[in-house]
């Protein structure tokens, strides 16, 4: 080893201060983004989502001879069910593995011993993962759009962009929920298990539960709509259907009620629901992580 020639205080005259809040978050976000891009889960999710999205696009258009916007509408409807299954699973498991994984590997302790706050670590990881997830979705949607353009001769750019936008919002909401799960879980396996449970609950159980409770409790139509809008997946589904210029009547009396009472404000209400699902779990994760007594 070379001779150590450090000074009693610092070679820099004074020790560099801890990074400001935003710069610290950015450092972690960049590292998380790079790590995610290089990781196997990112490649696997991106590949799976792309293959499924292209497959759905091709199947939606096969033998129908649809062109232009009608072709897009059919494809978007096909993609909708795929997105509602795959995207929450991707985002929930990615979020669940983040903090719990670092904790289990022992790397979290070392990071927290640096001049950074827990909030910087958590928000940095969230933003990095969010960017990686959106990139992954963009690859899938991009290839799918290429197929769509090739087969139908055109894509409704605005409508397609809205589909991508709402999907990204759904991914961010599910990532927040995953991060919250990760903060309260000591082990990665527990976090992943909870994330899968949350996915099952949101994708399947809530639908069945809503149907059952509407029958058993004889809920009014506005109550059923309120409960549906509180579920991020239902909000996403309604938002995409509205975005496709389709009538929410396809969703029955609840859809008709929503269209009639909220009109043009409906997409905003649904987007607000998704935003709330993004911000509330993330804020809870920040508070719980900051208050945690141990690593």
């Amino acid at each position: 080893m070379s001779a150590i020639t450090s000074s009693p205080v610092s070679a820099f005259g004074s020790v560099p201060a801890a990074p400001p809040l935003v710069r610290g978050i950015t450092r972690f976000a960049r590292r998380e983004f790079r790590d995610a891009l290089a990781s196997k889960w990112f490649l696997l999710y991106t590949f799976a989502f792309t293959v499924l999205a292209v497959g759905v696009s091709v199947l939606s258009l096969s033998g129908v001879g649809s062109h232009g916007f009608a072709g897009f509408g059919r494809t978007a409807a096909g993609l909708l069910n795929l997105i509602m299954l795959v995207v929450p699973l991707m985002a929930l498991t990615a979020g669940a593995g983040s903090i719990a994984g670092e904790r289990e590997r022992g790397t979290l302790l070392y990071l927290l011993a640096q001049p950074v706050s827990r909030t910087q670590v958590l928000l940095g990881k969230y933003l990095g993962l969010a960017a990686a997830l959106v990139c992954s979705l963009c690859v899938g949607f991009g290839v799918s759009a290429g197929v769509l353009a090739w087969r139908t001769g055109g894509v409704g750019i605005g409508a397609y962009a809205m589909l991508v936008g709402f999907t990204a919002l759904l991914a961010l909401a599910m990532l927040s929920l995953g991060m919250l799960i990760s903060v309260v879980s000591r082990r990665t396996t527990v976090a992943t298990g909870l994330a899968l449970f949350a996915w099952l609950a949101l994708v399947f159980v809530s639908d069945l539960g809503l149907m059952a409770s509407s029958v058993l409790l004889k809920l009014r139509v506005q109550e059923i709509f309120g409960l549906a809008a509180a579920n991020p997946l239902q909000s996403f589904k309604m938002a995409v259907i509205v975005n496709m210029n389709a009538s929410l009547d396809v969703l029955g009396p609840v859809g008709a009620y929503a269209s009639r009472t909220l009109g043009a404000g409906l997409p905003w209400v649904l987007a607000a629901s998704l935003m709330a699902w993004t911000l509330i779990p993330l804020a809870l994760a920040v508070v719980l992580f900051a208050r945690r007594g141990s690593v």
Binding site: A18, L109, Y110, A113, Q114, P115, V116, Q120
Partner: peptide
Amino acid sequence: GRHARALVGYVP
């Protein structure tokens, strides 16, 4: 904490 830790190098 982060300002205090800026004054410390930690070796686990």
